[in-house]
Nucleic acid binder design. Structure first.
Lengths: 338, 338
DNA sequence: CTTGGCACTGGACCGTGTCGAGTGCCAAGT
DNA sequence: ACTTGGCACTCGACACGGTCCAGTGCCAAG
């Protein structure tokens, strides 16, 4: 009973603080919420919540602000999912469905996510390692060069040009291609990479140099870490809203944005549905004032990569989670179609 | 004579202000530079320079700071080109030569430029419209789909897949390809696009649908504005150095960075060698405290695109121009090789 | 367990006074 | 015709002190 009210108080404080950006006091709380008790009672509750580590007071006579633990409790047990408006859903759908290729989808996702949340948006490119081989093509070019093209289930097209020491015959190229396709079609890229290695030995000695060069390039493409780790970032201008504390809130975010590795780490591992990391939970001490809301995306069930937003811990979690979830869903759907 | 000294004073003021970020007064000036005259004389000169619009005083009794006009005079007539150190040249060269494809070159250029200048770096992708056709390939895929691949002189590889209503024969595809190559090889992309249009009529009526579909796709690829306008941005963390005036200096830059069109406009049109735009010269009122140093790049003579940096007007112009120039030169050279 | 009352705390805000860098101007010197 | 030292003046930066008030903690009564 009393426990319930305390949690309600915590919820009210989080909501008010997010809305006003100012420490909230007992009196203001009873005025803005129908809690049915007096401010003195609230004071007792707030003191208790502070003891338990959910709140902290900047100084003796200011209001309270939620701690990271307080926010954590809020998102875990107190927040109700805030549904997006119809207009917002429409906006996401129409904007994303106008995309013409995978790059465009990623760029548009970043943009719409930044707009919806007023935060910094991060979208990881569909991971090569988690998608499968949809198509492979070998094209002999002039001279002794061969163009290798791979299309993955996530719609990505990767191409390489291989310089050979000798010019391969048409029939060899055709043979090689069909064997490659047979061995790798529908396979996940890391597995396909393994199958390729086995392939070399099935060719005659004379053809080995050519086959080996092409197959190696292909295998490299399959397990290309560089493109696997690419992310797009947008909504940087929203950093302006983070408030005036430049050094504590903005600079660390800018620095994190410079390093793709850091961003990937922040997005975290695949989990289904939006998840939240608050302050130090991000794993970086300098981002103690920052929270990350991320979700995996991909056609139903499958998970191609992650996307999400980065903002101050004092953010509107329900709205942000809803937006991240919705965008992830639409992106997944569109990738499945395209 | 006296005119010379005044310009020297202006130069000294710009240099000191850039170094200290603080308004510079007459006394400090005579102490730090051997001007051979007393501070009173300098005061007279400063008053004259202020009358002519090269300097301004924040308030009655602070030092003077250069106006945009002052900076303009400085870069036009007073600055000496500051050569990069050997170590810096080495760094640029080794870092850039490690790139594996065009995307990588662009990303690395942004990074090294941001590092060298401690500013926000902007690099435009090699423009399609200014490069020429190096190779065209048509590949029949399973079903009635055709893969179209274009390689440009700037090393970019673009590919499209065309869905046809009927399956084209091998000989038609081969014939089409050789005619396309004959018509477009070595042409600049916009011209190549025109040549393609003429090509359709040279085929028999039966083949027209197929030819037309492929040629149209190819023409679109040639004149693809979207990829023509892509830019990469980096060094955002350097915004931290812009100083404390968040709203006037940092926010506008962040906002500009969000819109690629704006960035392209800032980089400006092709001019050979680094050029500078100071404050309002950028064409945007909200960037009045910002200056852009940009240069075109490309293999000797040719100009593929622009690159440059964006920073506060109080920047080290000689050093920045040297860095921009050097990176542009190396990038051009590497693109020519690859 | 709740409530009103009350003393207390500590930042925010404001006006004042002092300090000093830097200016403009002038009269004297070269 | 310039240059120079001197001098009065200006204005921001900074420190000090006082007032104000939101908000707290605690207590005795309901």
């Amino acid at each position: 009973m009393i426990e319930d009210r305390r949690l309600n108080v915590l919820r009210a404080i989080v909501e008010d603080y997010v809305a006003t950006q100012e420490p909230v006091g007992s009196k203001a709380l009873v005025e803005r919420h129908r809690l049915g008790v007096s401010s003195a009672t609230i004071r007792n509750d707030m003191a208790a919540l502070e003891d338990e580590g959910y709140l902290s007071a900047p100084h003796t006579s200011a209001g309270r602000i939620p701690t990271d633990k307080g926010y954590r409790m809020f998102v875990d047990r107190l927040a109700e999912v805030k549904a997006l408006s119809v207009a917002e859903r429409r906006a996401i759908e129409t904007f994303l469905s106008g995309a013409i290729d995978v790059d465009d989808i990623v760029m548009r996702s970043v943009k719409i996510l930044a707009q919806l949340t007023n935060q910094v948006a991060i979208v990881q490119y569909p991971s090569l390692t988690r998608s499968t081989v949809r198509h492979v093509e070998l094209v002999g070019l002039e001279g002794s060069r061969v163009l290798v093209v791979v299309i993955t289930s996530s719609g990505r097209v990767e191409q390489r040009i291989v310089e050979l020491t000798q010019t391969p015959g048409e029939q060899l190229l055709g043979d090689l291609k069909s064997r490659i396709v047979r061995a790798t079609l529908g396979q996940r890229l890391p597995e396909a990479s393994l199958r390729l290695a086995e392939l070399i030995e099935t060719f005659e000695l004379d053809d080995r140099p050519v086959v080996s060069a092409i197959v190696t390039t292909l295998a490299n493409t399959f397990s290309n870490e560089r493109s696997d780790e690419r992310v797009a970032v947008g909504g940087t201008a929203n950093l302006a809203r983070f408030g005036a504390d430049f050094d504590t809130a903005i600079r660390p975010v800018l620095e994190a944005m410079e390093e793709q590795v850091v961003l990937l780490h922040l997005l975290g591992e695949a989990t289904s549905g939006p998840h939240v990391r608050i302050g130090r939970e991000t794993g970086r001490d300098d981002l103690s004032g920052t929270a990350v809301v991320a979700s995996n995306y991909g056609p139903d069930g499958e998970s191609f990569a992650q996307l999400g937003t980065m903002g101050p811990t004092r953010m509107d979690y329900p709205a942000t989670m809803a937006a991240v979830g919705a965008v992830a869903r639409y992106v997944g759907r569109i990738l499945a179609d395209g």
